[in-house]
Amino acid sequence: MSPATRPDNSGDDARRRRLHALAGVTVHGSDGKTVGRVRDVYLHDATDELAAITVTPRQLSARSVLLPASAIAALPEVPEDPGPPRAEAKNPTADSPTAAAADDQATEQGGDHVLHLLVDAATAKAGVHPPATLHATPQGLQEAAAALHLEEGSAHV
């Protein structure tokens, strides 16, 4: 199909940009505790709808978990142009309680966007590892949902 006859998909592009802007957003469990930050965003190939995210508990951590879209209670309102990156905390160790408190304080002051889950932080952190190929299969998403004790057909965002 030529560009002149292609239907207007600017809404799709805006939604895709909004979903990709989730990278780096803080993730909280249903208990209000911090799970980590979004590292990757997975979209369904056919529909470009959100399929899953991976969350890294700490900035320098190699461990991450795959969280299917069915685990997400609410997406944050992310502006289309997030602007310059937020200044990093002055504490050099991102794992320290002081750095975590700085992240929580920034969140409370509206300096950060928060994604809320339907499961508590401990359950989310115990989820399955993301696939090595950066492509989540339907079976992988089902396994991730089962690890979080989500029922089949749970509400999606």
Rank of each mutant, 00 (worst) to 15 (best):
S2L: 15
S2G: 11
P3M: 15
R6Q: 04
S10Q: 12
S10Y: 03
G11L: 08
D12I: 04
D12H: 08
D13E: 07
A14P: 15
R15E: 00
R16A: 01
R16V: 00
L19T: 02
A21D: 05
A21Y: 01
L22C: 14
L22S: 03
L22F: 06
G24W: 01
V27H: 08
G29E: 04
G32Q: 06
K33C: 09
K33Y: 08
T34H: 12
R39M: 04
V41K: 03
L43D: 05
D48K: 06
E49G: 13
A52H: 05
I53C: 00
T54V: 07
V55R: 00
P57C: 07
P57M: 04
R58P: 12
R58L: 11
A62Q: 07
A62M: 05
L66V: 09
P68G: 14
P68E: 05
P68D: 03
I72F: 08
A74C: 08
L75H: 11
E77T: 05
E77S: 14
E77F: 05
E77V: 03
P79A: 08
E80L: 05
E80P: 10
D81G: 10
P82L: 06
P82F: 06
G83E: 05
G83D: 13
P85H: 05
R86E: 07
R86F: 07
A87I: 01
A87W: 07
E88D: 14
A89E: 03
K90C: 11
N91C: 09
P92N: 13
A94H: 13
S96H: 15
P97G: 15
A99R: 06
A99W: 07
A100L: 10
A100P: 03
A102I: 01
D103V: 09
D103A: 12
D104N: 09
Q105G: 06
A106V: 00
T107Q: 12
Q109G: 09
G110I: 01
G111H: 12
D112M: 13
D112I: 15
V114D: 04
L115G: 02
L117S: 01
L117Y: 02
V119G: 04
D120V: 02
A121H: 11
T123G: 03
T123K: 01
A124L: 00
A124S: 02
A124E: 00
K125H: 15
G127M: 05
V128K: 01
A132I: 06
A132H: 03
T133Q: 08
L134R: 10
H135N: 14
A136T: 04
T137R: 08
G140Y: 02
L141W: 00
A144F: 01
A147H: 02
A147M: 06
H149Q: 14
G153K: 02
G153H: 04
A155C: 12
A155L: 10
H156N: 13
V157L: 09
